[in-house]
Structure formats: structure tokens, C-alpha cells
């Protein structure tokens, strides 16, 4: 409730903010900018995954097959991969293949890459989705609770404990956390299985290992946003109306933290999709991440290309979904970016 000094006049708009999109409604301009970014990202993703094999120093086929492989095999494989063609031709073929769902053939196992991915994709998707749901479901109540706690006289002393706990969960990386979970819940307590996927006994730890860190991070964002909202003048306005506490909290405060929560949540979700790589390795889950790691180790470039592409597409899909939600629920112009 600071008493303001003299009137601070609103500054006149800086020229930097003038763009052609300013003439459009904020939503339309947001949609245009984000669509532009999506298309550009798609292009970059395709080019990047195409380039994987070309950026490798030296001869990728020789590297993949090892120094003892016969020259004939190397030449044949190179021909199979189309590496003898000019690069532009290769790219055209690659894009044409993509459009038909053809991701090539593994150098090492001779399996069809698309088939391998199709078989393993559902596991990864389920893991990521469960992880996200757990993260959101935990983060909202914890973050809001922590914010409210921080404002009561007694809660202020408990606040460092909550913040410290969240801080530790954020700082410990997922693979370590998973090892810790295995040590406690599998080795020591014998409650859950340390490896595998599919039933409850084996699924709990991977989902926790994947989601606890992001959950803590998101909870902190929620807490910070919530404190900001609780300190705002419009919350004083709401208090002045002497509305029931639950209306003040859920109707006046909650909608104002959704944008920030979702924006960060979207980033976390795309982080989660990549986090599955680690979790699947720790818990020996037969998903795409596991496939990717073994492909990197064996230098199975076509497989790497395929899996990286699918992961990147998942990330783009997540970003798109978050943008769509933001555009529907956020009434303001605050959906702006740098």
C-alpha cells in the first residue's frame, strides 16, 4: 500500500514495439507469430535430422560398421543409404520418404526404423503423459499452499522448509533421483520393481523419477506467481468486497497464475519428453529413449535420425497444444514474447 509519489506519467510508446502485427488483435498477432515459429521449427527439425549423418566427421558408415568391416559391406551400405548421391538429391529423397512415413532402415539390425518407433512410441507417450499429470496435480496444490503459508505469521517460519525441500527436488537430476528411488523403494523397502514397465509395481518409480523434479519446479513457479497475485491491488479489491475466501482464491487468484503456470508447464512437458530417455534407461523400459541411447552407442545413424525426429515432433506438438490453450483462455495481451 505504498503511497505513490507524484504522478508518474505513462511513457509514450517506444518505436521498438511497433510491428506490422500491432495492427492486428493481440490474439491474431500471437497466432501468426507462433504459427510462423512452428513452421520454421518444423523445417529446422527436418533439416537437422537429415544432417545428423552428414555432420559426423569422417566416414559415418565406416564409423558405424567398425574398422574391421569388409570394404564391400561399407560400400554397399553407403549405397543403400544413398550417400553416393549429391546432397540435394539426398535431401529430396529424405523428405519424400518422410512424407510417406519411410524413415529408412537400421544399419545395425536391418529393421525398418518406422516400425521400431511405432512399436515403442506408445510406451514413451504413456510415460511422459503420466509424468506430466503427476507433476501438474502435485504442483498446483503445493505451490498455492506454500504461497498462502508464506503470508501467515506462523507459516513464514515454515516457509524455508518448504522452499528448501522444493529446491532440493529441483536440483537433484532425474537419473540420480531415480537411483535414489530404486535404492529406497526397491532395494530397501522392496515395494516396487526396479525395472520394467506395464504394471503398477513397475510403473510407479519411473513416473515419480520423471515427474518429481518438474513438479517441484512448477510448484515454485506457482508459489511465486501466487504470491505476486496475492500482493496485487486487485486482490485488495477482492478483499474489500468481503467475498468468501474460496471465491477470492479460486475465482480471483487462480486465473491469474494460469498463464505463467502453463507457459512453464509447456516447457517442462517438452523437457519431460526428453527426460523419458533417461528414465527409460535407468528402469530398462522398452521405449523410444532406450532405443535412442543404444542407437547412439552403436552409431546407428538412420535409427538416430528417426528417433530424434519423432522426439522433436513431440516437442513441437506440446508447444502447439500449450499455445492453443493459452490463446483460448488468456483474455489479455500478456501473451507476448521477446
Amino acid at each position: 500500500m505504498a503511497t505513490a509519489p507524484g504522478p508518474v506519467r505513462p511513457a509514450e510508446p517506444a518505436p521498438a514495439s511497433a510491428r506490422f502485427t500491432d495492427r492486428l488483435s493481440p490474439r491474431a498477432s500471437f497466432a501468426i507469430r507462433r504459427t510462423g515459429r512452428l513452421v520454421a521449427s518444423l523445417l529446422i527439425v527436418v533439416v537437422a535430422s537429415f544432417l545428423v549423418i552428414h555432420l559426423v566427421p569422417g566416414d559415418p558408415v565406416r564409423a558405424a560398421l567398425g574398422p574391421t568391416a569388409p570394404v564391400g559391406l561399407v560400400e554397399n551400405t553407403r549405397a543403400d543409404l544413398g550417400l553416393d548421391e549429391p546432397v540435394t538429391r539426398q535431401f529430396a529423397d529424405y523428405v519424400a520418404g518422410l512424407l510417406q512415413g519411410d524413415l529408412g532402415t537400421s544399419i545395425q539390425t536391418r529393421q525398418d526404423v518406422a516400425e521400431v518407433i511405432a512399436a515403442r512410441f506408445p510406451t514413451t507417450l504413456t510415460l511422459a503423459s503420466l509424468g506430466f499429470l503427476v507433476a501438474i496435480a502435485g504442483a498446483l496444490p503445493i505451490g498455492m499452499g506454500a504461497a498462502l503459508l508464506a503470508r501467515t505469521a506462523r507459516g513464514r517460519s515454515a516457509n524455508p522448509v518448504v522452499s528448501g525441500g522444493l529446491g532440493v527436488l529441483i536440483a537433484v537430476p532425474d537419473f540420480l533421483l531415480s537411483v535414489g528411488l530404486i535404492a529406497v523403494f526397491s532395494v530397501w523397502l522392496g515395494l516396487f520393481s526396479p525395472a520394467g514397465w506395464g504394471d503398477l509395481r513397475s510403473s510407479v518409480l519411473p513416473v515419480l523419477g520423471l515427474s518429481l523434479g518438474p513438479m517441484a519446479y512448477l510448484a515454485r513457479i506457482v508459489q511465486v506467481e501466487m504470491i505476486k497475485v496475492l500482493d496485487s491491488t486487485y486482490m485488495t479489491t477482492a478483499r474489500a468486497k468481503r467475498l468468501p475466501q474460496r471465491i477470492v482464491l479460486f475465482r480471483h487468484a487462480l486465473p491469474n497464475i494460469v498463464t505463467a503456470t502453463l507457459t512453464v508447464g509447456g516447457l517442462l512437458l517438452s523437457g519431460l519428453t526428453a527426460g523419458t530417455v533417461v528414465i527409460e534407461t535407468v528402469f530398462a523400459i522398452p521405449g523410444m529413449g532406450n532405443t535412442l541411447i543404444s542407437a547412439v552407442q552403436t552409431k546407428d545413424y538412420p535409427m538416430i535420425q528417426g528417433v530424434v525426429l519423432v522426439f522433436a515432433l513431440m516437442v513441437l506438438a506440446v508447444n502447439l497444444i500449450v499455445d492453443l490453450i493459452l490463446i483460448t483462455i488468456d483474455p489479455r495481451t500478456s501473451i507476448s514474447e521477446g
Binding site: 545428423v52 559426423v56 566427421p57 526428453a274 533417461v278 547412439v296 530424434v308 522426439f311 516437442v315
Partner: peptide
């Protein structure tokens, strides 16, 4: 995600 960028660079 950062990990994806790392993996991409690691491949190279």
C-alpha cells in the same frame, strides 16, 4: 529440451 540438443551434439 536441452537434453535433446545435447544428444544431437553427442551424435555428431
Amino acid at each position: 529440451p536441452w537434453l535433446l540438443l545435447v544428444l544431437f551434439c553427442t551424435v555428431i
